[in-house]
Amino acid sequence: MQTTPTVLVVMGVSGTGKSTVARSLADALGWPMEEGDDLHPEANVEKMEQGIPLTDDDRWPWLDRVGEWIDAQGRRGEPGIVTCSALKRAYRDRLRRPNVTFVHLAGTRETISRRMAARSGHFMPLSLLDSQLETLEPPGPDEQVITVDLGGTPEEEVAVVLAALDRD
């Protein structure tokens, strides 16, 4: 029996709708939500704004901040939702806790690039999508993950997650 409340890590490459899905899940579940992009060190944001892909060394401090948020939720005994690309298994391993479930938003390059082109005011340019797709190591069957196909509306994608949580 799980004693620490669930924390959902909504993951995927840029443009998959992590923030939209996470906010909708937070509203539906009444859980606190943290925007993982807000936890990036300023140097990371500057690199991405310039179209420079992040390295593993750039990502470790950011992933540690995300992990600290997850741990704080556990200490408070609260569930939560945080967005984080979590592209590589090593990154997910850094965030993995018994109470963490990853929500992988997965879609084709065409679907994701269309979504990225439609949004405004985000520091991640469309030019970095290919490097993110190359970096992505989709979660394996041994990982605690809910995979959501990006073929539907955000409401339909949220419904997939809520249905999967209800089965647990």
Rank of each mutant, 00 (worst) to 15 (best):
R59V: 01
R76F: 07
G151H: 09
V148N: 00
V21R: 00
V103Q: 04
M48C: 03
E137V: 13
T153D: 15
P61C: 14
I81H: 05
D130Q: 14
Q73Y: 08
A106Q: 12
T101S: 11
A118M: 11
A106M: 07
Q132I: 13
A159Q: 11
I52K: 01
R167S: 13
M11G: 06
D64W: 11
W62F: 05
R109S: 13
F102H: 02
Y91F: 14
R167I: 04
S113D: 10
T147F: 09
P141Q: 15
L165I: 02
M1P: 13
L95W: 08
G152I: 03
D58F: 11
N44L: 13
A28I: 03
S24W: 01
D166P: 00
R115F: 07
T6M: 13
E35Q: 07
P98E: 10
I146P: 02
K18M: 14
G12Y: 00
D149F: 01
T111A: 11
R23E: 12
I146H: 04
Y91K: 03
G36E: 05
E157M: 15
E42I: 11
H40C: 01
T20M: 02
D166F: 02
D168Q: 15
G77T: 01
P53F: 05
R23H: 14
G152W: 10
G140N: 05
S127C: 06
L87R: 02
T83A: 04
L87Y: 01
S85P: 09
W31L: 03
D166M: 01
E49A: 14
L25P: 02
E46A: 15
W69I: 03
R92S: 06
M48V: 01
L126M: 13
G67Q: 06
E143K: 07
D56N: 09
L105Y: 08
D64V: 14
K18P: 14
G74M: 08
P41Y: 08
P61H: 11
S120C: 08
T108R: 10
F123L: 03
R92N: 10
R115Q: 11
P41M: 11
G36L: 03
D27R: 12
G77Y: 11
Q2T: 10
L29Q: 00
L165H: 05
S24F: 05
A86Q: 00
R167P: 01
P41N: 10
Q50R: 13
E143H: 15
S127P: 05
A28N: 02
K47L: 12
I52T: 15
L29M: 07
D166S: 03
T135V: 15
W62I: 04
W69T: 05
D38W: 04
A28W: 05
E143N: 13
S113T: 10
H122F: 09
A43D: 11
E110K: 14
E137R: 15
T111G: 07
A72V: 02
P32W: 09
V7M: 07
T3E: 14
G36P: 13
L8K: 00
E46P: 05
T4Q: 14
Q50M: 08
T108H: 15
A106V: 10
T108Y: 08
R96H: 12
S14H: 10
P125C: 03
V158P: 00
F123M: 03
T4S: 12
L133Q: 11
L54N: 00
G140C: 06
T16P: 14
K88C: 07
F102V: 13
T6L: 12
G15T: 03
A72P: 01
Y91N: 03
E134L: 15
G30A: 05
L105W: 06
P61L: 10
Q2N: 13
R114G: 12
R114Y: 07
T83C: 06
L128V: 05
